[in-house]
Amino acid sequence: MGKNTRTILICSGKGGVGKTTLTANLGIALANSGASTAVLDADFGLRNLDLLLGLENRIIYTAQDVLDKNCRLDQALVRHKKEPNLALLPAGDPRMLDWMKPEDMKKISEMLSEKFDYVLVDCPAGVEDGFKNALAACKEAIVVTNPELSAVRDADRVIGILNTSEVEPIQLVINRVRPNMMASQEMLSIDDVQGILSLPLLGIVLEDEQVIISTNRGEPLTLTDGRSPAKKCYLNVSQRLTGKDVPIIDPKKEGKSLKDKFMRLMQTKVF
């Protein structure tokens, strides 16, 4: 491989913590910054990345066809109309899980590496074969979790497996952060989660209704013009991923009402 392509696994263990949403938004943000970016849906059982990107009607071939040599790679890649720097390689049908091997995924990722600067692999939930296949395709990893018991526990399992692999660096994104609940100490804090998982923190994403709305429309937030808390966070994560020295968004500074300020006062350590 001539190019220094970064192949990044986006995983979480638990389902529903926001892997696919992060993949879609990060993909758009990276592409928007000028890097040619591919997003690979490695969730063959329950694929959704096409939906989040609004590309579900444009899929003709899938990763499976590429492996079977039914088509060339560029025939299977779906270019995003509004962000031509971004292409999706759709997942094949669930039956692929029966025969798919880590080497197959590796092959796909090597093919993508020849054409793109960034390859983001949206990993399936769980720690079984689907996860291990996706892992084989990547050189680094982002673990997504929520400030919530079950998500952190599952993330810990995944990190245990990642630590035995060659993947490096492994970075953490804490998703669905609610500053108010953290301020009133009814939610695990960023420090709690990061301390327990002991991974470098790549960023946080605030809980935001706009995420649901953007999913409904099939337009990731980073593609839209509006301002929203989650969009700001996704852009921040993207910048930090590309090595820009910007600080992580601090949820403590996000709430601006008097109540939020009072809650912050209550967090002061007395002894």
């Binding site: 009133s184 100490q185 939610m187 709690d192 327990i196």
Partner: peptide
């Protein structure tokens, strides 16, 4: 006490 403490202890 606030539930975050309980969560942290249970998780650990």
């Amino acid at each position: 006490t606030a539930s975050a403490n309980t969560a942290r202890e249970r998780l650990q």
